[in-house]
Design a protein around this nucleic acid. Structure first.
Lengths: 255, 255
DNA sequence: GCTCTAGCTTTGTCGGACAAAGGGAACAGA
DNA sequence: TCTGTTCCCTTTGTCCGACAAAGCTAGAGC
């Protein structure tokens, strides 16, 4: 006959983990708001009653999770996790899982089409202005593959933003980050790549402005199909997706 | 007149970050394969020539990123980041960004419909067997909201898995993790909730088995609409989404 | 009132230390 | 020979104390 449980399971976790959990709890439940300063390491030592080394290990956990950051003066404060940083973890995971081109392409098709549908429905004047501004910059750098690729990535982030759906925005980011480095290669390797890319963006903005869902979906599909054809042309190059990812990851970390 | 650049920017980063970067690089480019042991902390101290405290801070960064883990004996080894762990970071971020119900619902509709479409097209016998097994377990616990909610979450993970698209699998996970804790509340609060949920699962498996895309999409929509109606019924309860998330996060961390 | 410097604070890193837990090898018994 | 036990070594988690470099602050000097 089993006895009634008298005790709860003891929470056995390393001290640094408990420190991280405690601070996370305060941030997630809102007692510490984004932007609020966390104390200095010494403060935390006093509050938690553990050694500074232990505190520092806990801080690393939270920092990597994007919950806290150090500002210019290296003081700690809570912050809203940035999508692009979190997404880069996922992109890394996708590379490690060796996802196929089909998986990436199919998922992106779904996510980008959903983004444009949202954008067509809910884009604000502000959103459209940002997209238009992006288009102008793209036209100016159409001969520079690296800068054009960067503009393209930003364009699609702006479309997702215009959808007014942050869940979607976040869901599309990991796949988009894997797209980005290949765009440069495609624009470099395919003669008509640059102009076609800019033209597609123009049509997409136009569709959003006219609230023309059909056109938005159509041009998103074409845009992605262009990207696929370009990718298939250069797929025989010697650089692997892993290498592309590594370069991208290092570049973003430096920011 | 600007001089030609003689020097590259010096990479100024804390030592612990360099340690983490160096190990990450070896894992991502494949020189260290998932499962391979990383040395002991003392080994790393010798290899990198820094203090053990510094090594340990670097290890925390990688551990949080899911790139390395400690096995039962606490030895370090590389590993494939697990989707559910990474996704919980994103779920946390979504909570902090205070996403609305509309955003969550709309994105999930897109992602779950895409999952079922993939599953209908590509599910293997193995996938169908797993789904059938899940259904049987769901039927057995239809009166237990907590366990039924867990089965439901697993069911949709299995559908995504059956789509044979890991990018999609990963993209849907953050939103799904926010769904999960509410499912229990809905099944508890709505009388017909449990049976309707199980019935929907049965129809979904059937659609996958018959490769009937229309039916799959239809029942996914109905299933999600049921969830929404349930949510709207209980939305006046006193527990906020943040609380639901916190409880869920703690439960998963203990695993 | 403004600037500049000296001093205090904080971070990043180091060296060493110790208890607890795990793994492994030697040893005893079947 | 195989199995089970015990003791020792290793490894981890944590602590203590220390110091240089960089930031911040307050007071001196104008």
């Amino acid at each position: 006959m089993p006895v009634a449980p008298l005790f709860r399971p003891i929470d056995v976790a390393p001290a640094y983990q408990k420190v991280a959990d405690a601070i996370e709890r305060e941030i997630v439940n809102g007692r510490i708001k984004p932007g609020d300063p966390i104390g200095t390491e010494h403060d935390l030592v006093r509050q938690f009653g553990v050694n500074r080394s232990t505190i520092r290990e806990g801080i690393r956990v939270l920092e990597e999770g994007g919950l806290i950051r150090r500002d210019s003066s290296r003081r700690l404060h809570a912050c809203l996790p940035r999508y692009s940083k979190l997404a880069s973890r996922l992109s890394r995971a996708l590379v490690l899982h060796e996802v196929t081109f089909r998986e990436l392409y199919e998922a992106s098709m779904t996510l980008e089409v959903a983004s444009i549908e949202g954008a067509v429905e809910r884009a604000t004047e502000q959103n459209i202005a940002e997209l238009t501004n992006n288009l102008a910059r793209s036209e100016a750098v159409v001969g520079n593959p690296a800068m054009l690729a960067e503009c393209d990535a930003e364009f699609h982030v702006l479309v997702a933003k215009a959808s007014q759906n942050r869940v979607l925005q976040l869901a599309r980011e990991p796949a988009a980050q894997l797209f980005y480095p290949t765009t440069e290669m495609i624009v470099t390797g395919v003669a008509e790549g640059g102009p076609r890319l800019v033209a597609a963006h123009r049509h997409l903005i136009d569709a959003i402005r006219r609230r023309d869902r059909e056109a938005g979906v159509l041009w998103t599909r074409r845009h992605l199909q262009d990207w696929r054809r370009g990718f298939e042309k250069i797929a025989s190059l010697d650089r692997s997706v892993e290498h592309m990812y590594m370069e991208h990851a290092q570049a973003t970390r430096r920011r």
